[in-house]
Amino acid sequence: MEGLNEPLFGKLGFNISVSKRGFIAENTYEDGVNYAKVALPVYCALRKSYKGMLFVNLAHRGADTLSDYSSLEIDTRVLERAMKVGDCYWVNTMIPSHSGLDCNPFDYAQAVLPATLQHAGGVEVIDTASLCGFLSEVFRFLNPEDRSLYLEIMGQTKRFNKFLKYAASTSSHHNQEHGLLLHTAETVANVLLKALATTPEERASSKPPFDLSLTLLAALLHDAAKVDEYYRLAPDVYSTNLNCELLGHEQTMLKWIAVACAVSGCYPTDRELKLEHAICAVKKQHDQSGARKRKTPESFVLHEADCASARAFDKGETSVLLTHQFTLGETA
C-alpha cells in the first residue's frame, strides 16, 4: 500500500478491511428517513490489496444530510451495531464526507461500472472487479507527487466519472461504452510490459531506461481530456463539440495539467514539462504550430503503448489485458 490509503481503513471481521469512505451510489429522502445505497471498497486485511466492492443499503432517521454529497464517512463500529430490517441496515448516524477526492479513485470505480465490460464488439468480456483491481495497484505504484497531480486533474467537474463511461473515439478504435477506460488500461499494460522487458540491471540502475511512474501517469491521462470533446447522445453514440474541432484533447490536457500544477504549487516544473511532452510530442516537429518531436524515452514508450492498443483493436486481436492476464475475462 505504500501508506497511501492506510489511514482510510477500518477492519471488519478478521479477514477483510473496508474503506472509511463509502461512495453514495443512490440516495433518497422520504418521510424523515435517509436511504442510501453505499458502495464500500473491500480489501484484504493483511495486505490492504483491493478485492472488490460491497454494496450496503443504509437507513437513518433524521435531517436530509446527504443530498449534496457523493461520499459517506464509514465507521465499522456503527455498521456492526446496525439493525437489519428488510433490505436495509438501520444506523444511528450518517455523516457525509466533506473531503475531496484524496483516495485511490480506481478503488471506487466499480461502484459506477457494470459487472463486466464488453470489448471488441462483444467478442471479449472483461471482468470489472479485476480491471479496477489492476488499475488500483498501478495507481498505488505512482510516486506520491504523480498520484496527487492525477487526483487534482481528474477530480474536477466529474471528469473521472465521464472517463469511466465514455468511448475512446467516435468511429475508430474502442468506440464503445467504457472504451476510454479499456484503451487506457491497455496502454498502461503495454507500458508495464515495456518495463518488464528491460534487464534487471537496467531496472536496478540509478538511471533506468525511462521513468516508469511518469510514463504510467501519462498513460492514465493521455486520452482523458476526450471527455470534454464528446457529447454522449446515447449508449455508443457520440458527437464532437467545438472543443474537439478547434483545440483537441491533447491541448486540452495541457491546460488541465497547467492548472493542476498551478493549484498544487508543488509539482516539479521539469517533471511537468516531461509529462506534457510525453502526451503531446509528435513524430515530426512543426515549428510553426509549436508541435515538438518526441525526444524523451517516456514519450516514445507512451506512443508505442498507445498505438499497440489501437492497432490490436483494429486488427481484432485479443486484448493485452487478457493475453497477459492483467485482468480476468473471456473471449468468444
Rank of each mutant, 00 (worst) to 15 (best):
S171G: 07
S148K: 11
L164M: 14
S171C: 12
R159S: 05
R147S: 05
F160M: 10
F141N: 04
K165V: 03
H173S: 15
S172W: 11
N161K: 12
G155V: 03
N161L: 13
L151H: 01
E152R: 12
T157Y: 11
R147Y: 01
R147G: 03
T170E: 14
L151T: 01
T157H: 14
T157Q: 14
K165D: 11
S148P: 00
L164Q: 10
E145S: 10
E152V: 00
K158Q: 09
Y150H: 08
Y166T: 05
I153P: 01
K162V: 01
G155Y: 04
S169R: 13
N161E: 15
E145R: 11
A167G: 14
E152L: 08
K165H: 10
K165W: 07
Y150R: 04
E145W: 02
K158T: 00
N143P: 00
Y166D: 12
P144E: 06
L149Y: 03
E152Y: 02
F141Q: 08
M154T: 03
F163A: 10
F160G: 06
H173C: 10
Q176M: 14
G155C: 04
L151F: 02
E152H: 05
D146T: 00
N161V: 04
F141K: 09
S171R: 15
K162D: 06
G155T: 01
H174C: 09
Q176H: 14
R147W: 01
F141C: 05
K165I: 04
T170N: 14
S172V: 12
I153V: 11
N161P: 00
F160V: 03
N143Y: 06
K162T: 01
T157E: 15
K165L: 13
Q156T: 01
L149N: 04
K162W: 07
H173Q: 13
L149H: 03
M154I: 05
L142I: 01
Y166H: 12
N161D: 12
K158Y: 06
Q156G: 01
R159T: 01
R159A: 08
I153E: 05
H174S: 09
N175T: 07
N175S: 15
R147P: 00
E177K: 15
S171E: 14
R147E: 02
T170K: 15
M154Y: 02
E177L: 15
E177A: 15
A167L: 08
T170I: 14
N143A: 12
D146H: 09
F160A: 09
L164F: 08
N143L: 10
L164G: 08
P144Q: 07
Q156W: 06
S148Q: 09
S169K: 13
L151P: 00
L142R: 05
Y150A: 09
T170V: 14
F160T: 01
L164E: 09
S172C: 10
S172H: 14
H178D: 11
A167I: 03
K158P: 00
E152Q: 13
S148M: 08
F141Y: 13
N143F: 04
K162N: 09
R159W: 04
H174M: 10
N175M: 12
F163C: 08
L151C: 07
S171Q: 13
I153S: 07
P144G: 04
E145T: 02
L151W: 02
R159Y: 09
Q176C: 13
Q176D: 10
S148D: 05
E145A: 11
L164V: 06
P144C: 06
L164T: 04
H173L: 12
L151D: 00
T170P: 02
E152D: 05
I153W: 07
L142F: 04
S172Q: 11
Y150L: 13
K158F: 07
L164D: 08
K165M: 11
